[in-house]
Design a protein around this nucleic acid. Sequence first.
DNA 1: ACTAAGTCGGGTGCCTCCAA
DNA 2: TTGGAGGCACCCGACTTAGT
Length: 366
Amino acid sequence: MPSLETGAGFVSEPSLSIVATQTARRKKLSGTLIKATALVEVRATGNEDLRLSDRKLFNHLLAIAAPNIGKTTRHNTHLSDIRRFAAEARDAASHGDTNFWLKESLTRLQKVLVQYDVLGSDGRTWVSDHLLGRVTINEVTGELTFEFPEEVAQRLVEPALYSALSLSVIYQFTSKYALTLYEILKRYADRKATEPYWSAKIDEVRDVLGCRDKLKDFKDLRKKALDPAIQEINELAEFSVEMDEVRQGRGGNGGRVVGLVFRVRGKDVGELEKAVKTAAKPKVQRQGEAAEKMAAAAEARQIKQRSVIAALRWLEAADFNTRKAWAERAAQLGVTLPAAATAPTNLKKWVPTIADTVVAEEKLQV
DNA sequence: ACTAAGTCGGGTGCCTCCAA
DNA sequence: TTGGAGGCACCCGACTTAGT
């Protein structure tokens, strides 16, 4: 568990220092960013979503400002520093404005509202404010000056709300859903509970991920957002996460998914070293390896499917005694058999579980 | 026991737009 | 400029549950 440095926005974390950046300024920023949990769950208002690059930019600005929040409202950085971390910032030539991308991203961040409740002696107060305040760019010197609204700044320095986020990990994410989910789960990973978890209704998860009106089909949400995000977190972050579905009502597999439980587990030294090595790889290489893994998994599913078909066809054509013998074998292997398991129409209820064994031992062609 | 309803998994294809 | 990710809308089969 990281410990807070007095008055500073960063904590030391040995596992992350391995991937410290080369420049002096980046060394200052590498490590862990302390981010108020209230800001973890921000989302853009209106029709425009925050992009991955916007979230990275905000985290970067936050890291720059963190040591001085509470002391001063205005913070400074240099455009070259931002371009170093964000390849997107180098696209300027096509727009004829060397800071086009940056201005667009900053504008989107300024449109984001932060809303939260404050409990005080006079009861609960609802607060709504902009995530990012006034921003100026000096086109000659390349100096970027920015402000956080007072209320937001106050929450940024509220230790009880802090969540430690790894900048080195943040920089590596390629999925905006991975970054958002990481920010949420990090605070649970930081807790000292033996089995930390985040349990949320499906609508809450959609809100947090910024896809309330997108990916309406849960399987699309999982395939396009959750699975890639979890995979990326498990590869890069200092903790791993497993997701359980909470189902209710009628339908296959126990009904509709109404909620999700994300179980967080800290990685051991070996796993951390592996994550650091993965994070050190170029994104293109990581994406290539991820694609290979996905392809391998897809091929494995196809092979499994062919095994199931082969086993079912073979057993459907087999005599009663053969089906009975395989039913008994399945029971020995721990498979729960349905009533009248040997009936050809019931084979599909249990044969898929032991299809690989049937194919191997009966030497079936797949 | 049977049927209808509701849901998911896996797959495909198309379009848009982002990121390199 | 272009490959690929994201988003969306289908289809079909399988499965479970509720209702009759």
